[in-house]
Write a protein that binds this DNA or RNA. Structure first.
Lengths: 245, 245
DNA sequence: TGGCAACGTAACAGCGTGTAACAAATTGCG
DNA sequence: CGCAATTTGTTACACGCTGTTACGTTGCCA
């Protein structure tokens, strides 16, 4: 994944500078902002992965801004506040903040929260099937079953081989159900010759899974969709929606 | 608890004397020190519950000393400094100080901070479950059940293995209740195949507990949360709160 | 205090998985 | 049909997790 782009929103210039500087030192891209307008401008001008939003913004109210943003888009938000009272915290969660951190905070804790929220945000996406176009949409990807090709979130196109396509179809037919290597192999060979010997010698399925992961997972090393069920087999762990439109 | 033993570290003799005297008048045992060597000597010679550490120690650097100490032991530290700038405070927290106080300080404020830190350090950690984020917070740690990972108070992240996660879940389901090795093993194998032989030969649970302790206890040698009940088994001794938010 | 049982844990071995590198099979195209 | 490019399967090695063993330490009781 590319470097996460964070938006640091605070009306106190010192705080803003300190936070952006600290986040940059730790490998993030941090952009400063101090009002709701500036937030919206940034959102229009480029990708933002996470917003760090101060609750007290002069005459504006961070909680309200948070609620507004949530109504529009689904960008993760961490609320930052000098008030650690519990009711404040609850109000934060209620408007849909992903986390809450009190000032003054431990910088390492901030980092941990930021990383946790970012990771949570990119986890298990849902799967949608559009009857109209006969396409699957999952994890930001679009899969055209007719043309055996896949289009990534940023529009990049990947061609799947025959075998990879077949595997993907088997998995798409059984979301959330762990399939053993034998089951997968059997399903794949339905089209092929009669019966495969029940004891497949090799690790063909493992390698095939690896190759499919390399193509459709953002982080193949830490797969979010095509997961391993140790001692069992593999699962496609996405939620399914069918758009009948 | 016995009388808390505090170590007052400052290179200015007046300051040192004033602080120790004041703390003694208020019921503490206060020991003076003025260098890193002296600190180490004191730590070897007897129990120290809290260190009040001046940031400016002539040619030594309090922040560095703090970081060093933290790497070795888990004694609470309050940094004292003439500089109140926020980034100083952040630097302090970054190296693991428990609190930060600026000179000149209100003596009553110092007392309050000292008491707060001491209490925080010795109190039985509590356990909270936040439905919203599906996370456990216990003993300063945050445990994300979904992702099998744990975030420590200072933001360090630890991944738990499958087995460790299972153990932690079993324990979290039975706080304050001592569980025998057999009970734990049984609970762990619910997911696994039919029945384990009732007499497990080995010490698998002991080793597993040890490994989990190494990850979630600040002082694995002297566990505060995952305790041994000699002759019985193990207990998770934390208080539970559920935030239903 | 000595002796013994319970406990902690380092070291090791077995297993399942990921994957790079190679070999075999298949496909596409002149 | 022949040949190159691509796809597919096989093998070998590395790595992380788990349970076992062995030995040192701790705590209890006579």
């Amino acid at each position: 994944m590319t470097i996460p782009r964070l938006l640091v929103v605070d009306d106190d210039a010192d705080m803003r500078q300190m936070m952006t500087q600290f986040l940059r030192q730790n490998g993030f891209i941090a952009l400063p902002a101090q009002s709701e307008d500036e937030i919206l401008t940034h959102l229009e001008n480029g990708r933002i992965d996470l917003i760090l939003l101060d609750v007290m913004l002069g005459n504006e109210n961070g909680v309200e801004i948070c609620a507004n943003l949530r109504r529009e888009q689904d960008i993760p938000i961490i609320l930052v506040s000098a008030l650690s009272a519990d009711h404040q915290r609850m109000a934060g969660y209620e408007v849909g903040a992903d986390d809450y951190i009190a000032k003054p905070f431990n910088p390492q804790l901030l980092l941990a929260r930021v990383r946790a929220v970012l990771q949570r945000a990119q986890r298990t996406p849902s799967l949608a099937y559009r009857r109209k176009t006969r396409t699957f949409h999952f994890g930001g990807w679009t899969y055209n079953a007719k043309k055996d090709e896949v289009i990534s979130p940023d529009g990049f196109q990947v061609a799947l081989s025959r075998r990879e396509t077949a595997l993907l179809n088997v998995l798409l037919a059984n979301p959330h159900i762990p399939l053993t290597r034998e089951e997968i192999a059997a399903a794949l060979d339905v089209t092929a010759s009669g019966d495969a010997s029940p004891e497949a010698t090799g690790r063909a399925i493992d390698v095939l899974v690896g190759r499919l992961r390399a193509k459709i997972e953002k982080t193949p090393k830490d797969p979010r969709m095509l997961r391993t069920e140790r001692g069992v087999g593999y699962v496609l762990s996405v939620d399914v929606t069918v758009e009948d439109t």
